[in-house]
Design a protein around this nucleic acid. Structure first.
Lengths: 165, 165
DNA sequence: CTATATTTGATACAAAGTATCATCTGCGCC
DNA sequence: GGCGCAGATGATACTTTGTATCAAATATAG
């Protein structure tokens, strides 16, 4: 009766939840219902969600999430490295690189909203070098590249007007 | 009586205002009082300001700024490229590179709040390359690198506790 | 100086995020 | 399997950040 019926029990979902379980054990953190629920919801959305979109989806399931609890849980999952916040759109996505800590870059299509998570060695090296050159010991690197993806460029080509964004 | 008395008429201030004047003429935009005021305030603060910090400072001068007008003006100055928004701290800074359009990176010290604006050719090239590789025509690149600056590392060295942020 | 298209100021509101604290619960231990 | 309790949650209230609307004011071309 309280089960999440409209969240598909796909292999991807099982994998993500298992990963969360492992990470919690590894870090000596508790695996709780809201943590599972946020992860599963973010996974099944398959796109970035604002904290309040996420809140609405969670409430549809369990009825007792709040803004505070959603933000707390998102902070937790971010600390584990399995959720990222897109600063430029104030939204949250599931991390696509499930192995270890890493520096990622996001490419965001301003037409369709598609987000690609990349792990580019050259950018990692260049930012590290810049940090060193300017005397900074870096511990966080936000790289968000916005533009128009291939598909959108193709499909919008004939309707293109210079003024439009 | 209505003049901004506690804003120093430094050469830097004159230069920035002249630049704003030029840009407005160039783009066929109006040079208005709030636009000058926001620029001058941001300049004299010499650090990133949140929109509401800026609002408070402006109100101390003219008494009739509002959140809406501040955001409008910031959007305007950002479109001209002379103000940047730091996504990671939700604050606004005057651009340090006053010549032409450009891609910049920010280095932010999480201890003292110092912000350095860089224009690194390697990062520019690497991000462009990544965009091409993934089929994105990029038009905006947010690069914000957070860490601890040289001065703070030096001065905090003896008090350092691993747990502290 | 005048005409007018833009911008502003005022108001109200929406969205995003945080603080506090009593209650509940995951999980290590028996 | 059940107990105890550190740590997490839910509830509430609040702060910060950002937008929409529209009548009144004003920067600039002529």
């Amino acid at each position: 009766m309280r089960k999440a019926r409209n969240v598909s029990p796909t292999p991807a979902r099982e994998r993500a939840l298992r990963r969360l379980e492992d990470l919690c054990r590894e870090h000596g953190e508790r695996l709780t219902r809201p943590r599972r629920a946020v992860l599963a919801t973010l996974l099944s959305a398959r796109r970035p969600l604002s904290a309040y979109e996420l809140l609405d989806l969670l409430r549809a399931e369990d009825g007792k999430s709040t803004a505070a609890s959603v933000y707390r849980t998102l902070d937790f999952l971010r600390a584990l490295g399995i959720v990222h916040r897109l600063e430029s759109t104030r939204s949250f996505v599931l991390c696509e690189h499930l192995e270890g800590p890493h520096w990622v870059q996001f490419l965001i299509c301003r037409r369709c909203g598609q987000v690609v998570e990349a792990e580019d060695e050259r950018i990692a090296a260049a930012t590290e070098r810049l940090g060193q050159r300017l005397g900074f010991a870096l511990d966080q690197r936000i790289v968000e590249l916005t533009g128009v993806c291939e598909g959108c460029r193709a499909s919008a080509a004939c309707h293109w007007r210079p003024g439009a964004r």
